[in-house]
Design a protein around this nucleic acid. Structure first.
Length: 205
DNA sequence: CACTTGATGTCCT
DNA sequence: GGACATCAAGTGT
């Protein structure tokens, strides 16, 4: 595939998370791990908004954890869950308005050997970044990467754009592990063995 | 200050 | 298909 890889601009990401999510499919998230650079082509993402989105970390306002989501677009929001996992989001919309896209899964396109070294439990290439916590683990992202600017070429974590994937190849469905807002199909993916398996959210109304 | 619960992965049956 | 690990943020007392 001869897709164009370039840095995103702030304007491109200053849009609604639902639109940004589709725009991000096919793009590459690249990080400098301790063992070298690893790049992941995004094949599955989810949109999260603010006060009108019960599933969002920003639903109940600005806190120290979700602060980055309220900031300008193009920054990385990393959070810790389940006592052992990190998940990463790409912040969109404008400064002061919360919104982000959770990167759920991707295909390792650069640094494949390094990725396997970082995640010995992965028994195939597809498993390396099949799921949000696996993806962040493969890119060696931690709490320290929270708030990193993805739009600078000299940044330790970078977002590289691609030509938009054809709209008809994008699938949509409810977000994984979310029991609220089932009527909002804000999970988007393109066909790939790395797409994570769907599971319904826990008990909530 | 105590209690609850995750935007999950892994291993077990 | 299901249990369970493991802890910080968020919420309430």
């Amino acid at each position: 595939m001869t897709t164009t890889r370039r840095q995103f601009t702030e304007e491109e990401l200053a849009v609604d998370p639902v639109d940004a999510a589709k725009l991000l499919l096919g793009c590459v998230l690249e990080a400098d791990t301790p063992d070298g650079p690893v790049g992941v082509r995004l094949v599955e993402v989810e949109a999260y908004r603010g006060g009108d989105d019960p599933a969002s970390h920003c639903y109940r306002g600005r806190t120290s954890r979700n602060d980055v989501m309220f900031g300008p677009p193009g920054f990385l929001y990393v959070y810790f869950v389940y006592g052992m996992h990190y998940c990463a989001n790409i912040v969109c919309l404008t400064d002061g308005v919360p919104g982000a896209v959770l990167v759920r899964a991707g295909e390792v396109v650069t640094g494949l050997d390094i990725a396997h070294k970082l995640r010995p439990s992965a028994r195939s290439d597809a498993e390396l970044a099949k799921g949000p916590a696996r993806l962040t683990s493969t890119l060696s992202l931690t709490r320290e990467d929270n708030g990193v600017n993805l739009l600078r070429p000299d940044s330790p974590v970078r977002l590289l754009a691609s030509d938009p994937v054809p709209l008809e190849t994008i699938h949509a469905g409810p977000r994984v592990g979310v029991a609220t807002a089932m009527d909002r199909p804000w999970r988007f993916w393109i066909d790939s063995p790395a797409v994570s398996t769907y599971r319904r959210g826990g008990k909530r109304r």
